[in-house]
Design a protein around this nucleic acid. Structure first.
Length: 555
RNA sequence: GCGCCCGUAGCUCAGCUGGAUAGAGCACCGGCCUUCGAAGCCGGGUGUCGCAGGUUCGAAUCCUGCCGGGCGCACCA
């Protein structure tokens, strides 16, 4: 909020400088406004002079001096700065008036849940596709990371003003599902005492036996003579999907739409893609299969889209699906994928381009693997062998808040080491509690104030200039930073930034709390600090909501 | 062999579109509860930012090459 104003003020002064011939329009470059980490370097700093100096072949400090002259005139900046100065090689450091920071409190209190949100995505529709696991088994921790990441991205985009649709794309036909059905059938026959041959690459999880057991309960021996896998596959899908949805619900995740690959075939959309590509001479037949000339799009080799058996490979429906998403009118398609699916991206992008759509509208977020650590040992995972740890097990162990927080503590690009020992500790080592505790503590202060007869007065009656401690101004600055942080995090699709922000804010607050009394002797001071506490509570609540972690009033 | 990701403190990781003296958590050591919650606070850091070049006023950040780790490279998804 303040940063935006500073940016505008600098822009305005730059333009004034052009008018006054202090520099030329050409001096404009990609200059930055940042918040220096070090005290004494101002609340904001810009490298404008250094950038301009490079383009104009002049001395940075000379331009910086001129810029300071303009920025120092309140008429040019809306009376924003206490002082502006040149520093180092040519930085311009801006010190914002305390009153500007202090005015942040009433704004936050007034905006409440709205505080932090912005409208930069207003009018734009974005579809976030994630999880998209076929119903062959319970969600594993890898899916868990993706689920939480995708959901947090959706929350961020929504807070940035976008209209967001969460979509789950799946396929309940195909080889995987056939093997699943055969596996259930084998277990079913086993339960009936009929000799069977378990599929070589079948699914071995305990859940397969449970599904078979349910079939025995419901159907008895009715399916004994059925040689087809379909009834078994159908039952398995039903049970597993219900299970997946229950898991997602526990994580606080709800999809707006489930898109079944079937639809693409039923509506002839897959054939349409092939025909379209064929018309353009982008496919050819070889060895009984149909190939897509992906080399036309700069890729290493052409790819099969229809096998010699007549079945399509995953690429074809994937391309058809993406075209459908384009046709549905979204401005932006965000796909969240595990790093094991990275190879599919270029092919699909080539397909989109071939069909005349803009691949620039698609952003793929690839997240790296999750390594589960227990007692310093890596827990090996494999869906087939059922040695995986499921999201449900994780939730049983640590709960939804810890699960979500831990999955969002790392940027997607980093492999994530999930320390089960640490996550299960309900103590100070656990960063989730650290942040939640700040919120609970603020709520407690509110209760205390009420008990002591300190009822909050209207903000108009509060003298905010009394928030003059360095710590208070730093707190205010951090609080005021949420809107621009949210906007950056949303566009970058990086929810982990919110997590780090919350940890930093919690540290500032805990430190402040331990040194200064909020509710004390001086009633005026108590009122203003109570208002600060209420505003802080809003910021924590809003931040936690962004990552889908609860904000408890007491713990 | 090729593509993508990662390599920063003992461990796990941040570091915003290149910026000023590189940060946090954990672990470890010492201190702080007769006043708003000790799930907290305060103090304690000798890091070749994997290595070598390059780009420039300025590089952990961008480019090239190499080394190490992960994930892929099907007529599986």
């Amino acid at each position: 909020m303040i940063k935006t104003r500073v940016q505008a003020a600098i822009d305005r002064c730059f333009a004034l400088g052009v008018e006054q011939k202090l520099w030329t329009e050409a001096a404009a470059g990609d200059y930055a406004v940042e918040e220096p980490k070090r005290a004494g370097q101002g609340d904001f700093a810009t490298n404008l002079a250094m950038v301009a100096a490079g383009r104009e072949k002049r001395k940075p400090r000379e331009i910086a001096e001129a810029l300071v002259g303009l920025l120092s005139d309140p008429a040019n900046t809306g009376d924003l700065f206490q002082r502006v100065e040149v520093a180092g090689p040519g930085f311009v450091n801006c010190f914002v008036k305390p009153a500007v920071w202090q005015a942040v409190v009433p704004v936050i209190l007034e905006q409440g849940e709205e505080f932090g949100r912005c409208s930069s995505g207003a009018g734009r529709e974005v579809l976030v596709e994630f999880v998209s696991a076929n119903p062959t088994g319970p969600l594993s921790v890898g899916h868990g990371r993706q689920a939480v990441l995708g959901d947090a991205i959706a929350r961020l985009l929504s807070a940035a003003g976008y209209t967001v649709t969460r979509e789950y794309y799946y396929n309940d036909a195909g080889r995987q599902m056939r093997v699943l059905g055969e596996s259930v059938r084998a277990r079913y026959l086993d339960l009936l005492g009929v000799p069977y041959e378990f599929p070589e690459d079948g699914y071995q999880g305990e859940y397969i036996r449970e599904i078979a057991l349910a079939l025995v309960d419901e159907q008895g021996e009715a399916l004994k003579e059925v040689s087809d896998h379909l009834p078994f596959t159908k039952k398995a899908e039903e049970v597993i999907f219900a299970d997946i949805n229950a898991t997602l619900a526990r994580l606080g995740i709800k999809f707006d739409n489930y898109y079944n690959e079937h639809t693409l075939y039923e509506q002839g959309l897959v054939d349409e893609v092939v025909a379209n590509l064929r018309d353009q001479g982008l496919v050819y037949d070889q060895d009984g299969a149909v190939w897509f000339k992906t080399t036309e799009f700069g890729l290493e080799q052409d790819r099969v889209i229809i096998k010699s058996s007549g079945e399509p490979t995953y690429r074809l429906p994937d391309i058809a699906y993406h075209r459908e998403k384009m046709r549905r009118g979204y401005d932006w398609l965000v796909n969240v994928l595990g790093s094991d699916h990275i190879a599919t991206v270029p092919d699909v992008m080539a397909g989109i381009k071939a069909l005349g759509y803009d691949p620039g509208k698609v952003t793929t977020v690839i997240h790296q693997f999750v390594t589960l650590m227990r007692d310093g040992q890596q827990v090996k995972m494999s869906t087939r062998k059922a040695t995986f740890v499921t999201v449900d097990e994780l939730l049983d162990l640590v709960g939804a808040d810890v699960t979500r927080f831990f999955f969002l503590m790392r940027k997607a690009d980093s492999q994530l080491e999930f320390d089960l020992n640490l996550a299960t500790k309900e103590g100070q080592e656990n960063p989730v509690y650290y942040v939640q505790y700040a919120h609970a503590r603020l709520c407690s202060i509110q209760r205390q104030a009420r008990e002591k007869g300190l009822t909050p007065v209207a903000v108009a009656e509060i003298d905010f200039s009394r928030l003059d401690l360095a710590e208070e101004l730093e707190l205010l600055q951090a609080m005021a930073g949420l809107p621009s942080l949210l906007e950056t995090a949303a566009v970058a699709l990086e929810p982990h930034r919110i997590v780090f922000y919350l940890q930093d804010l919690a540290a500032r607050f805990h430190g402040y709390y331990n040194r200064h009394r909020i509710v004390g002797e001086d009633e005026q001071l108590s009122q203003v600090r109570l208002a600060l506490a209420l505003a802080l509570r809003v910021v924590f609540a809003n931040g936690l909501r962004l990552i889908g972690v609860s904000a408890p009033e007491s713990m």
